[in-house]
Structures are given as C-alpha cells and as structure tokens.
Amino acid sequence: MTAARAQEPVIVVDGVSKFYGDVLGVSDVSLRLGRGVTGLVGPNGSGKTTLMNLLAGLIRPDEGRITVLGLSPDQPERLMRRLGYCTQVDAFPAGSTGRGFVVHWLVASGVAPRQARRLADRAIARVGLLDDADRRIAGYSKGMRQRIKLAQAIAHEPDVLILDEPLGGLDPLARAEVIGVFRDLAADGCTLLVSSHILHEVDLVADTVVLMNEGYVVAEGSVRSVRAELTTHPLQVLVRCSHAGRVASQLVARDDVVELRMHADRGGFVVSSRDADRLHLDLERIMLEQGATVETIVPADEDIQAIYDYLVSGAGGS
C-alpha cells in the first residue's frame, strides 16, 4: 500500500440527507473518512444508525452521494465483498446456531461450504465464541449475540467494517476482548467505523471521531483537534505535583486562567485556561521556579465524553 493510497478517503459522504417522511434522519452530511478507526458518537436519534445504514445500502439517500472504497452502496454485489456491517438489530433467523448463522452467510455469498466452515470458525474463534458455536443463538446471552454478529461481519475479512453499538450488552471482560479484536483488525489494515454510546471505550480505540446531533455532523477529526476547536470552552488540565498549592497560587493570577480547583489532599488541582499553549509553557516554568516534582500533567477534558458533553448537551459549541 503506497502512502498516497493510504491518504485516500475510504468513505466519502457528499451532502447526504435522508428523511423518513417528515422525520429527519440525517441532513446535509459530508464526510471523508480515511483508514484507521473512526468513532461515531451522538445521542439516540442523532442519525448514527441512519448514516451507517446509508453506507451499507440498506437505505438510500434522498439527496447526496456516498461511496465506500469507491463503490456505491447501490452495488451490494461488489461493495459487500469488501464491507462488513454489524447492525445493532438483535434478531436472528429462527433456529440458527452460531456457526450455522455465519456459514449460511458465507455460502450464500458464493463461498464453497468447506471453505465457509473454515472461515466461519476462524471468525468465531476471533470473537471467542468457538466453544458455543453449535448452540442455538436463541439460547445465547446478549453479549454472545453481539459477538456472533461481529463474527459474521468479519468472516469474509472485509476492508471496511461498520459496527453499530458493537459493545452493547458485553460485560467488561468481553468488551476488552472485542476492543482488542477491533485493534487487531485495524492493525491488519481494516478501516473501522464504530458507533457507541460508551464514549470512553470509543475513545480508547478511535483515531478520529465524528460527533452527530439531531441529524447533523457537529464535529469531525481527531479528538485533540476537535477539542482545540471548542475555543469557547477553556481547556482543563489536571496537575499532580509537589508544592501544588504554591504552583496553583502562581497560576490563578494569570488572566487566561478562568478556574482552578484544588484537590482535597492538596496534592494537585484542575486548572481551566483559555490559552492552552501558554498554560503548558507557564506551568513548566512555574514548576521549575518552585522546585516542584511533577507527578501528572494531563488534559482533563480532551476526551470524547467531554467534547460530547460540550457539543451535544447544550453546553455550547465552537
């Protein structure tokens, strides 16, 4: 894969709108998503599933154009060879076993039965469900059902994987395992678009995020760049160091600092500043001057949850 090719957008959405009668699904959405893992974040009804269904061709845009890997979703015969979609629909064909469910999909795709069983077993093993593969899905837990859907979506080793709330219903251990699968897939060159309301976990796995609200894309980019655009919200920095009180007293006098909260143990504080770059430079200088030993200096709100709260919860915008 050449560097130029790696830069090409994998998913292109141009001015796409979708209405369900009078109800807005998504409005005038334009995105260019490259390789890696993209988190799609937004509250219920924000248009995440609509956007994913549009990408997979399950619904059609009223306006605009979509391509995935240069292919239109109107061409399922070509696109679905390279795209896997794990929907959040928790329903399965009656009577299916886990293995049968995945094998059926592959055989219907044109894979020879023997190879289909091999590919299915590999995918099922990858999601850690091989021991239960011959049980009926009707007897699976919610987490197992999520995993067998994921196995089906990755069984043909797609180049692009769309995952709608893939972590829902999983216990913490299973979540960690599935996030590990996402990382492995991304490392193998698969492009992932992951929606989740468990923002912390999207944060762990996503290189870039797309935030949606009420059918609109409200922010897009790396978590850091999106946060940097939110200039109306002072950046919060968590500082743990020796002589924290003295360092804090030096900082509160600055005009860019809008808030400073000391920790109860007085071993650190959270400072909010309108000028992040200057704050970091001054922090280093003050700590040197005060002979303070640094334990931690980390952004306190440079994560998806904080950005989401700022953008979506009515706390403001950029």
Binding site: M1, R5, A6, E8, V10, L69, G70, E77, R78, R81, R82, H104, V107, A108, S109, G110, V111, L119, H156, E157, P158, D159, D188, G189, C190
Partner: peptide, 28 residues
C-alpha cells in the same frame, strides 16, 4: 481502491450469480 488484502469472496460473474441463487435456494 485496494491495499493488497484482497477480498476473500469470489468476483461477481454470471456463473457466481447462478451458484449464489442455487446456494440460497438450498439453504432456504
């Protein structure tokens, strides 16, 4: 666009479509 991974599934053709229809019919 291809990055060398290459799809595992066979490329579309008339023969494949007939095989797919037969496979779907059998499974159904």
């Amino acid at each position: 666009m291809s990055d060398g991974r290459g799809p595992l599934l066979p490329a579309p053709s008339l023969r494949l479509r007939l095989a797919q229809a037969a496979a779907i019919a059998r499974l159904e």
